[in-house]
Amino acid sequence: MVKAVRDVSFHVDQGEALGIVGESGSGKSQTMYSIIGLLADNGIATADKVVFDGQDITPGKTDKQTYEKKMGELRGNTMAMIFQDPMTFLNPILKIGKQLTEPIKNHMHVSESEARTRALRLMEQVGIPSPEKRIDQYPFEFSGGMRQRIVIAIALANAPKLVIADEPTTALDVTIQAQVLELIDELKTNSNSAIIMISHDLGVVAKLCDRIAIMYGGKIVEIGTDREVFYEAKHPYTQGLLNCVANPEDDEDKPLEPIAGSPPDLLNPPKGCPFVDRCTKAMRICKDRAPEVTTFSDTHQCACWLLHSKAVTK
């Protein structure tokens, strides 16, 4: 049994963007899939509590059928998702227009022609050139960046309360990535949606997110506002991560400081801190007991024994 996500707690407010950063296998995507009920069939999620917009959506509380029915209603309605590959979302055999007007008709109860007018306006909003022509085309006729914009247009149609974006720009080129990030940012400001942005790219979260959670080995090791995490990083892993990306604004091309070793095997997760094997400051307790959470401000928390009030710092 792979323990992909282990004891994770967080919240996100309306009109706020939370970034979840971690390397492959850190559990960032599985955390979100557990919450929105999209785990693979062999996945089991349990939680003390998951509350969305006042509704209890804790997995494993009700029987499977009731849970899935409820999640089915929420997803694509007040909860929108943007995946790395837009084709996991778009239906390849339906015209773009159909895929755009369907949610508009369902949720706003407007006529076919009214829905089409709104769909055209949405396409224009996300920057699709000549929407009149494009609306009757199929997804394969669109480039990767344009497909991602269609997915965002569909999300926009419902003015969702929560948007979960899982590496939405990883497959895109930088200039197209910048366009898509700006659209997601508009969703936040214009629709007051809450955004959860899953990414491995520190540059992307720095641009878009108000708060950032750093995941490692299935746990959130540090969480705080963008400035707290980037400028006052407390966890040795966060500090290490920041030191191994090249910041092109730094002129002295100082050598990168990679983190030696590789991430833990979550089939047999370490008993103590997940980062213990790669941490240069590891102590004996780090191997034996999971670190307690230390709070630095209302927003900034970090799970590391070094920061514990009883830790002796030299």
């Binding site: 930088v174 910048a178 990030l181 720095a206 641009k207 400035r227 920041l242």
Partner: peptide, 10 residues
């Protein structure tokens, strides 16, 4: 268009 890993600059 490069995302800079520094929130103030980005």
């Amino acid at each position: 268009a490069i995302p800079i890993p520094d929130p103030d600059i980005a």
